[in-house]
Structures are given as structure tokens and as C-alpha cells.
């Protein structure tokens, strides 16, 4: 019984870890697949490729929400839920007027950012496949 409990706990932990960005991804997938014409929402998606090799350098998806308090709050909650599992994160709250979140996971490298201004938000999600020369990796 005790062993079964330990296995169950490990299983739950594993599932939780595998859906590290689960809350944010779920919201983004919903907006990707069910875009609403009623909402003031702009969704952008693009792939950046190395011009020499054609390989994908990064994939970026960005959601811009204006005047939709409910959706904005959903994303803020998702970021708060997912930040605990991030390899590193930062939150910059400027006296409640605007908030910046950055969540970073490694292997694969994923960067999730949220900028909130009142009821408007910009969510930027990028998956980095390779470091290209246009970025500036910090080295010590």
C-alpha cells in the first residue's frame, strides 16, 4: 500500500512537470483554434529561419488582447500558475498599472512573456531551436 502511494505520488509529480507551461499553452491553443471575431484580439505567429541553412531558429506566437478584462485575467492567472515550474522567472509589477512576466524553461528553451497594461495584454511565446547570430547570449 505504501509503495503504491509512493508510485502514485511520483506519477502525479511527473505529470505536473510535463505540463510545465500547461496553463498558458492551453489558453493559447484555445485562442489559436477558436479565434473570436467578437474579441479585440490579434494573434501573430511566425517562424524565424537561418537564411543560410533554412533551419528554424525560433518559433514565435504572440497574442495581443485589448479591452477584454476576462481574457487578460485568465492569462495572468495562467502565468502565475506556471511560474513555479519555470527554470527562472521574473515579475515586475509597476504599482499595479502594468505588469511584466517572463518565464523561462530550458531544454528545450522556451520563453513566455506577458505584458499587462490595465485590461490589455501582450503574450509572447517563443521556442528557441538554435542560437542565431542576431541574439546576444550572455556569457560570463
Amino acid at each position: 500500500m505504501r509503495k503504491l502511494l509512493i508510485v502514485a505520488l511520483l506519477l502525479v509529480a511527473g505529470i505536473a512537470e510535463s505540463s510545465a507551461q500547461g496553463h498558458i499553452d492551453a489558453l493559447m491553443q484555445r485562442e489559436l483554434h477558436y479565434p473570436s471575431s467578437k474579441r479585440d484580439v490579434v494573434l501573430r505567429s511566425a517562424v524565424k529561419r537561418d537564411p543560410d541553412t533554412g533551419e528554424i531558429v525560433k518559433r514565435v506566437t504572440e497574442l495581443n488582447v485589448r479591452d477584454d478584462k476576462a481574457l487578460s485575467q485568465e492569462f495572468v492567472s495562467a502565468f502565475l500558475a506556471d511560474c513555479e515550474s519555470a527554470d527562472t522567472w521574473s515579475c515586475d509589477d509597476k504599482n499595479g498599472k502594468s505588469t511584466d512576466y517572463i518565464l523561462v524553461w530550458q531544454n528545450p528553451k522556451r520563453i513566455y512573456s506577458l505584458k499587462r497594461f490595465d485590461d490589455a495584454i501582450i503574450v509572447n511565446i517563443q521556442v528557441i531551436y538554435s542560437q542565431d547570430e542576431n541574439t546576444n547570449p550572455k556569457t560570463e
Binding site: A46, E62, Q106
Partner: peptide, 21 residues
């Protein structure tokens, strides 16, 4: 959008460097 993403990636790299990851 890509320019914004690059700026965010720079900030993320700063975070990773600060966290020594």
C-alpha cells in the same frame, strides 16, 4: 513581433545568467 521577441530573449538570457543556469 520578431524584434520584440529578440528583446525578450535578451532579457531571458540575462535572467538565466543571473540565475546561473
Amino acid at each position: 513581433m520578431m524584434n520584440r521577441a529578440d528583446q525578450i530573449e535578451d532579457m531571458a538570457n540575462d535572467l538565466l545568467a543571473w540565475a546561473d543556469i
